[in-house]
Nucleic acid binder design. Structure first.
Lengths: 107, 107
DNA sequence: GGGTTATAAAACCACATGGTTGACCATGTC
DNA sequence: GACATGGTCAACCATGTGGTTTTATAACCC
């Protein structure tokens, strides 16, 4: 369950339009129209981006009147973050070593 | 500098072969042949995956004799992790709320 | 009912991606 | 020099992606 979803989660995150949409949703629910508005792009194009987010499980849609209201679903983000955190110790070591090397030989 | 690289970082992470290669590199340097071996895939195909990781700044290559030795470069992983962590508070709230709701109405 | 609003769905285009194979180029070994 | 090894590069194929436009549908307003 984890590994499979990482594919679609990271794919969904690999686009700046979609990351911006997630950021917009972090301040509260938005209709698809509201999500689309800030992006210089056709409505249909933006709607497809929302579809990618929904398929990745990052967004839930529900119909309210004639609008689709979207809410952020953070669980897959947490999974992705946990996967990345496996390297936390590693990268802090490396960066500390780099910094030490720079201090030692200040050129 | 940050936003632009997130695209290529997340794209690089969106493939299980490449994630496995990063995991392999976390235990130490590996030649491209060693990285390719575990994957049922042509050598050239695996080499292309390594190329994606290099272009994303996640891996450095250097020539040693007739081999290319690869090392993990963790900094972009840290950037991606930091981006995801922006939602940390959000998802813990949501999940706490979900848990509370489940406890309150145990069905 | 008729018009407007919010969205979906489909067809299409250009380009990127993941994979292959085959030719090629170094480097090391005999 | 001859040959194997480690790897790159280019061409190719199928499929996916990001975008468009057009058409359709469902809900609301008058």
């Amino acid at each position: 369950m984890v590994e499979r979803n990482l594919d679609t989660t990271f794919t969904a995150l690999a686009d700046p339009t979609r990351r911006a949409m997630l950021a917009a949703l972090s301040t509260g629910e938005k209709s698809i129209g509201e999500l689309a508005a800030p992006h210089a792009m056709s409505f249909a194009g933006a709607s497809k981006h929302v579809g990618v987010l929904v398929r990745a499980g990052l967004v839930r849609r529900r119909k309210v009147g004639r609008q689709q209201v979207c809410t952020l679903e953070a669980a897959p983000l947490r999974d992705a973050e946990q996967w990345l955190r496996r390297w936390e110790g590693f990268w802090t070591h490396r960066l500390d070593a780099l910094e030490a090397a720079l201090n030692e030989k200040p050129q």
